[in-house]
Design a protein around this nucleic acid. Structure first.
Lengths: 216, 216
DNA sequence: GCATAAATTTGCGTGCACGCAAATTTGCGC
DNA sequence: GCGCAAATTTGCGTGCACGCAAATTTATGC
């Protein structure tokens, strides 16, 4: 059992996955504008009302196919960096990894997302989801000196990622229309690095403060 | 004329203001749940469809009565600080000022907002609006060395403000229910200060880099 | 097994956001 | 003043999010 009573949680995740898959498949087949939430629900074998028990907007399900549990993976990636590397490197590299790793699996889905504005917005909104896991991961590394700091830093990092994605989607949207099937890589890793760079001092300072406090 | 052809823009602002006022008045009179967008539109003397040309959600109009043009004021406040004060102080103090100054005018409206979850969310979302003006204000102070940096810093500051507001609304919601008419001041200024503090190093570093570049 | 409690799904109703195109209003040159 | 172009308002239709309560499914104690 994952959290509560096994079969319940299992079926819930199965339903969620079925909705994700159905949403993505239908969106790719017909184009995202020709997919109604009723279609997705029917394809997943649940009632339309149930769809909205899992996703609060039509776009969320489609985007979720690309996003998966990136939130959890980012947090885990931060936690897994050895204590030797600084907080800034741990956070930045973890994020870059997670956002470049997912380029391969859903290439076509990403292409779809970059096309439609509504999907782009939904995709950009997913950066908010990494905030809470990231808060805990940072708090862990900072040793829980001040819970406020971790929250602010995580929120700032998430905001920076959002800025980077926005920029990336903006530039790639205008450059990929001509050639057609160009994978929209405007070097997202580089963009993430430069975008997160200004936050480095804040992360370093928080780390120093934490060390100072720990040494009493 | 403000931007284009005077009377046009004037009437638009008048309509926007009428909608704001009507939304707030009705919300205060009947309670926010008993106000339909049709009612607001009727009270403002426009069609319901026009309402959505101005506000994209029912809550926005109500919240806008408290928010007004805080975006512009924040940016102006940052720009108005003398060049002597550092970037961090300029930004932080400007924000604290703007968010404490507006406590007085809409005390009752704020009380209303803190009560209903939907309004709280809409209120918190308004922090996103300060991002663009703040970007320009920061870029101005940094001397336009790197436009990326200003965007990231502004986004981070906005994110931090959002965190602070969230915290504030959360704590005051649980402490004000008992006594009833307590003005929800959990010392928002203090909270803003502590929440923005972790970003100070990032702002300072950006400023140093800008100075360094300017001196060649 | 079985009854009972808890959680999830479902149907229904309401209000809402928004695209679209026709109608109305405003600005501007003459 | 007058007519033309542009912007704004408006009505309409569609799809959607979500509260609510009944129905169904799942877990647990006995």
């Amino acid at each position: 059992m994952t959290s509560r009573t096994g079969l319940r949680e299992q079926k819930k995740q199965a339903t969620r996955e079925a909705l994700r898959a159905a949403a993505l498949r239908l969106a790719l087949e017909r184009g995202p504008d020709n997919v109604r939430v009723d279609d997705i629900a029917e394809a997943a074998g649940v009632s339309p009302r149930t769809y909205n028990n899992y996703f609060s907007s039509r776009e969320q399900a489609i985007v979720a196919a690309v996003t998966r549990e990136r939130e959890a993976r980012v947090a885990a990636a931060v936690a897994d960096r050895p204590d030797g590397v600084g907080l800034a490197d741990a956070v930045i590299e973890a994020i870059v990894d997670q956002y470049t790793a997912s380029d391969a699996p859903g290439r076509d889905a990403l292409l779809l997302i970059t096309t439609r504005p509504a999907l782009r917005d939904a995709f950009i909104d997913t950066t908010a989801a990494i905030e809470h896991p990231l808060t805990e991961a940072i708090a862990e590394r900072l040793g829980d000196g001040d819970p406020h700091t971790a929250r602010v830093l995580a929120a700032s990092v998430a905001a920076a990622v959002r800025v980077a994605l926005k920029q990336w989607l903006q530039t790639t949207a205008s450059s990929s229309t001509a050639s057609g099937l160009v994978v929209p890589s405007g070097s997202l890793p580089d963009l993430l690095h430069t975008t997160l760079a200004p936050l480095r001092p804040a992360l370093d300072a928080a780390e120093q403060r934490a060390l100072h406090h720990r040494h009493h």
